[in-house]
Simulated assay, not measured.
Amino acid sequence: MSTPARSAPRREKARAATIDEIKLTALTHMRETGTLDIRFADIARAMEMTPPALYRYFADRDELLSALIADAYDDVGRYVAEARDAVPADDIGARFLAIARSYRQWARQEPQQFALIFGLPVAGYVAPVDGPTTEAAQRAMSQLSLLFVEAIDLGVLAPPRLRDVHPAIAACADQKNQHLATEIPAETFQAMLHTWSTLHGFACLEAYGHFDWIDEAGRDALFDGQARLAAEAAGMPAPKSS
């Protein structure tokens, strides 16, 4: 009588394993072809399946892309959080530098995933509104804002260099604060966006080869300098060079 109860979890595990294999095959195809566009026919061929069989796991290509994008956000969020949490909680400057470096490193190690979430949109793809990609993006991008909250709570966050805030940015800060236990001032919220834009700009330039003319040691030094400048402009304790 217990056989059906035992078989259901086995089926669920088998289905989850197949979904993971489909996603891995899609990423492998992207790496090999240098494109973010995917076709069920190519994935099915690589997995020795028929294309219709894939529809038992994903309704269409867009649902598969949404799953890959959500995975990418979760991956970068986890990677950054682990790097940050490996540093003592009271050393905000070092935690800031850990976040910056890990974000850059993830972009270098996972160019396909980086391109999926930060590159040009895939032709014909429209992300679902308030779907898994939106939720995953919010989780990933919260890692930097959490560090600003930590700095506020520890009393080590100074006013940012730029204090003038456009009303539209202030409104965004108000909306963000509805989900935070510690309120982030509008000028600090703006500084947080400036910080992310600065670090992300470097990561993009490097990911797409625009810094290849500088050797690796030079790029490392350039990035750390940019991170220190971003921290100073945001009012963060300056991370020490190393």
Rank of each mutant, 00 (worst) to 15 (best):
L147I: 01
T182N: 00
H210E: 15
T182G: 00
H194T: 07
A158E: 14
L222E: 08
D174C: 06
H200Q: 13
A140D: 01
A140T: 01
Q178I: 07
L199I: 11
L229P: 01
A181L: 14
S197Q: 10
M192R: 10
D153M: 05
T195R: 06
H179L: 12
P185C: 02
Q178C: 13
T134L: 12
L193M: 14
M192G: 10
D220N: 09
A171H: 12
T198C: 09
L147Q: 11
L193D: 05
P159I: 02
D224W: 06
A170N: 09
F202M: 00
R163Y: 08
L205A: 13
A221K: 12
L222S: 12
G218K: 04
A173Y: 07
L180H: 10
S142Y: 09
L222H: 10
M192I: 01
E183Y: 05
L180S: 08
F223G: 03
A227Y: 02
E183N: 11
M141I: 11
A140M: 02
A221G: 00
A234W: 08
A233W: 01
Q226T: 10
R161T: 14
A203I: 01
T198H: 05
H194A: 13
G131C: 06
F223Y: 13
D212M: 08
A203C: 09
L193C: 10
F211T: 09
